[in-house]
């Protein structure tokens, strides 16, 4: 690969932006804020990721998806690095990501520690069912207006 043919960092970010989160496909990996850095060291592309939760079973799938996507765009020398500190926080989720989550039926994380409204009907009458939900990043809530249960993306 000659220097001219090396894809720009911006292109890489765009490609990464098209990879859906394996557990919540409505949002992308960049929406989730887990990709911390994209850079070249010599002609090797280094993508640095941080896990959402220590035991998140999606971590290895995410690595595989990134590798598959970037290789399909012609990246040959690629290294994925894990960075634990600073620890992932829901503050890194993009505004776009939050809106997509809500549209998908998952209440986005809030600094107050709970959803502000039901993602289905918009009512503020909500109650917590359990601190844990279908994936490590979510808790279970219920709307007392429309009676629908929903997931809330925990704020950490």
């Amino acid at each position: 690969m000659t220097l001219n043919s090396i894809p720009s960092i911006d292109s890489i970010w765009n490609w990464l932006d098209a990879i859906p989160d394996p557990e919540i496909p409505a949002i992308s990996l960049t929406d989730l804020g887990i990709i911390r850095d994209v850079t070249y060291e010599g002609d090797t592309l280094i993508v640095t990721l941080t896990p959402t939760y220590s035991g998140c079973p999606a971590t290895s799938i995410i690595n595989l998806d990134i590798e598959t996507a970037l290789r399909s765009h012609g990246i040959k020398k690629l290294e994925l690095r894990r960075q634990l500190s600073p620890a992932w926080t829901t503050d890194w989720m993009t505004q776009d990501g939050r809106a997509k989550l809500e549209k998908y039926g998952i209440a986005p994380p809030q600094p107050s520690g709970g959803p502000t409204k039901c993602p289905h009907c918009g009512s503020q009458a909500v109650e917590k069912l359990s601190q844990f939900g279908s994936t490590p990043c979510k808790s279970q809530w219920r709307c007392t207006a429309c009676l629908e249960p929903f997931d809330y993306f925990k704020c950490i």
């Binding site: 939760y53 220590s54 601190q131 844990f132």
Partner: peptide, 18 residues
């Protein structure tokens, strides 16, 4: 709910173990 909570806690612990 407790089943899910226990499984998630176990998952966090195994993740920290790694």
């Amino acid at each position: 709910e407790e089943d899910i909570a226990l499984a998630n806690t176990a998952l966090d612990l195994i993740g920290q173990t790694q």
